[in-house]
Simulated scan of single mutants.
Amino acid sequence: MGKRSIDNYATGLLLAGLALCALLMSGAFFLHVRHATDGHMEAAAAKARALPGVTLTDGHPGVIVTSMETNGQAARLGINVGDGVISLNGTPISSLDQASSYLLHHPQQRIALGLKHANQLRVVMLVRPERGQ
């Protein structure tokens, strides 16, 4: 083997090594981003399920009902998709984080939801299941 073929061989090995490093780094980055995103999605889903059978999101006013169980307690109480949840047990709420924090620190089963629907205000009592159910 001449000097030129040794240089080409070394260059090829170096490029292959760099390509392998780039591949490993991009795979590690993808796994990190996916894990971080999954964790964020799980936290968002937990917040969205703060009340039984009802999915909420930030909106105006307060927090907006985005979905609910068809034959669930919320539907029987006349809660509608698009209703604004503006208070919990008389405490005004303006964000999903605030609602989640309130519900976490006030574990009572009966929650008085202050609702706004078509500029009408009303209060309904929602019963949360006991923990572990």
Score class of each variant (00 low, 15 high):
4 R>S: 13
5 S>E: 14
8 N>P: 00
9 Y>E: 15
10 A>P: 00
11 T>F: 04
15 L>P: 01
18 L>W: 09
21 C>A: 15
21 C>H: 08
21 C>I: 14
22 A>N: 06
25 M>Q: 05
27 G>I: 07
27 G>D: 03
29 F>T: 10
30 F>T: 11
34 R>S: 09
35 H>T: 12
38 D>E: 07
38 D>Y: 02
40 H>F: 13
40 H>C: 12
41 M>C: 01
44 A>P: 00
46 A>M: 02
50 A>Y: 00
51 L>S: 09
53 G>S: 06
54 V>H: 04
55 T>M: 15
56 L>M: 11
57 T>G: 14
60 H>T: 15
66 T>Q: 15
67 S>N: 13
70 T>P: 08
72 G>S: 07
76 R>W: 02
79 I>A: 08
81 V>G: 07
82 G>D: 12
84 G>K: 10
85 V>E: 11
87 S>M: 12
88 L>D: 07
91 T>N: 14
93 I>C: 08
95 S>V: 09
97 D>N: 13
97 D>I: 02
98 Q>D: 12
98 Q>T: 08
100 S>D: 09
101 S>T: 15
106 H>G: 05
107 P>F: 04
110 R>S: 06
114 G>H: 07
119 N>S: 02
120 Q>N: 08
122 R>M: 01
123 V>Q: 06
123 V>K: 00
125 M>R: 01
126 L>H: 00
129 P>L: 00
132 G>I: 00
133 Q>D: 06
133 Q>V: 09
